[in-house]
Structure formats: structure tokens, C-alpha cells
């Protein structure tokens, strides 16, 4: 890495921090100092920060509970989506048959499934798991199919000339070649998963970050609600950053083409 790369990254980091501090200051100014908006709906930092302190144990428990749902659901969904995508993508006839269905189901919001999932599944955990699993599955599947379809013909020719077949073809050529698209799908799926996680928790959970926010909203404790939302955003930022790290590890070759 060159020093100019490091410099621009540092600059980016400082700019982000500056914007955060600026927004923090503006919110503090209009709530704590000027007291312009409704004090119940928009509590100042003077209330939110203590709310953080009081709820930290609950927030950590909520995080553990949410991750206990999110991680298995997203990981299993990605595994199933990528496997199915490659299996279908490598069989054009099967793909031609399935594509209309995949396209039809993909844009349907999985939140519509919530009443069904809660009715059919024995526990809340399972019903939320299913909702997140399905919500993540489609973008991953569609993007994997796309990635397989977009494999460069010269890679395919090359693989044929080396007599690569079966597992070797998948793991040496198809999977790495489709990886950029697969990660696009994983990113889209992750964003959906946060949405579905909080929605599902707001409806039927007894723990979790979405539950925390919903619970205190019911009691009009908006200092805690905002503390919970900030906590949730932090968690999302950390998870997305981790995924980005993995992505830059796996896709190291795309920067050097």
C-alpha cells in the first residue's frame, strides 16, 4: 500500500468522524440547549447518554440475542443461496425453467410472510429464522445466478482446455469467478436481514435489539429508544465493515486486473 492510499483513508476516516460530531452537536444544540422540539419525542443527549448507561446490560443481552438469530439465519441462507445458484446457474435448461419463479418471488417483501411464519412455526426463534433466511436467500441466489452467467467466456474456455470438471470446476473457476456478484448479493441480503430482524423482533420477540426499541417505544421512553437505535446502527456498521474486510480478502484479485 502506498502512503497516499493511507493518507486518503485517514482523511476519509476524519471526515466521517467530523460529520458524526457535527450531527451530534447540532442535535445537542436544538434539544439540550435551545429546547426547540418536543422533549418527549426528541430527548437531548443529557437524557440519552444516561439511558445508555442504565440499559447497557440490556443492550448487550439484546445484541447477543439478535446475533444468535441473525448469524445462523444469514450464514445458512448464504450457503444455500450460493450452492443453489451455482447448481442452477451451471444448468442452463434448469435455469430457464426456474428463472421466472425466482424473478417473481424475489421482489416480494419477506415481511409479508411474518403472520404465516408465526402461525406455522412452533417457536418465535424458528419463525424469525425462516423470515430472515428467505429474505436473504433471494438476493444471494439471484446474484449468484447472475455471477455464473457473467463468467468470462475465456475462463470457461480455459477451464475446458484444462479438462476441469465437477468439484474442481466449481471451486477453482466458477465460485471465484462469480465471487464479485455473490458479494453484491450478500451485501443486499445483509441489509434486508437487519430490516427483517428488527421487524420480526418488534412483533414477536422477548429479547433482542428490535424488541428493546419496540418495548421502550410502548412506554414512550424515547431516550432509551434512541439509545437503542444508535446501538443498532453501530452494530450494523461493525458487521458491514467486517463483511467488507472479508470481501476485500476474497476479492483481492479484482483490484489488480
Amino acid at each position: 500500500m502506498s502512503s497516499s492510499d493511507d493518507k486518503s483513508r485517514l482523511f476519509g476516516l476524519f471526515s466521517s468522524l467530523f460529520i458524526i460530531l457535527f450531527l451530534f452537536g447540532v442535535y445537542g444544540l436544538i434539544t439540550d440547549v435551545l429546547r426547540i422540539p418536543n422533549a418527549v419525542l426528541f430527548p437531548g443527549w443529557g437524557k440519552i447518554i444516561p439511558a445508555f448507561g442504565v440499559s447497557i446490560q440490556q443492550l448487550l443481552n439484546g445484541l447477543a440475542s439478535s446475533l444468535g438469530l441473525l448469524v445462523p439465519a444469514v450464514v445458512s441462507s448464504v450457503l444455500v443461496g450460493v450452492t443453489a445458484g451455482i447448481f442452477i446457474g451451471l444448468r442452463p435448461k434448469v435455469e430457464a425453467v426456474l428463472l421466472p419463479f425466482i424473478r417473481a418471488v424475489n421482489p416480494l417483501p419477506s415481511t409479508m410472510l411474518i403472520p404465516y411464519a408465526i402461525a406455522v412455526m412452533p417457536t418465535f426463534w424458528l419463525s424469525s429464522f425462516i423470515i430472515i433466511f428467505i429474505g436473504v436467500l433471494w438476493p444471494v441466489l439471484v446474484n449468484t445466478l447472475h455471477g455464473v452467467a457473467m463468467l468470462e467466456p475465456r475462463w470457461i474456455d480455459n477451464a475446458k482446455c484444462l479438462n476441469l470438471t465437477g468439484r474442481r470446476l466449481v471451486f477453482k473457476v466458477v465460485l471465484p469467478g462469480a465471487m464479485p456478484q455473490i458479494f453484491a448479493g450478500i451485501n443486499a441480503g445483509l441489509i434486508r436481514s437487519f430490516l427483517l430482524l428488527t421487524v420480526a423482533e418488534m412483533i414477536g420477540a422477548k429479547a433482542g435489539l428490535g424488541f428493546f426499541v419496540q418495548y421502550y417505544a410502548d412506554f414512550a421512553k424515547y431516550d432509551r429508544v434512541i439509545a437503542g437505535m444508535i446501538w443498532l446502527s453501530l452494530v450494523v456498521v461493525v458487521i458491514m465493515t467486517l463483511v467488507d474486510l472479508v470481501k476485500s480478502r476474497v476479492l483481492y484479485w479484482t483490484k489488480k486486473r
Binding site: 475465456r154 474456455d157 477453482k172 489488480k256
Partner: peptide, 16 residues
Amino acid sequence: PGLDRAVVFQDYSLFP
């Protein structure tokens, strides 16, 4: 295709 015939393409036949 077979490995008895090695092919070199114009646009470099390597996996990136």
C-alpha cells in the same frame, strides 16, 4: 478439449 493440446489465447488464458 484435451491436455494433449495446450492452448494459448490472445487475451492471456490465465485465471486472474
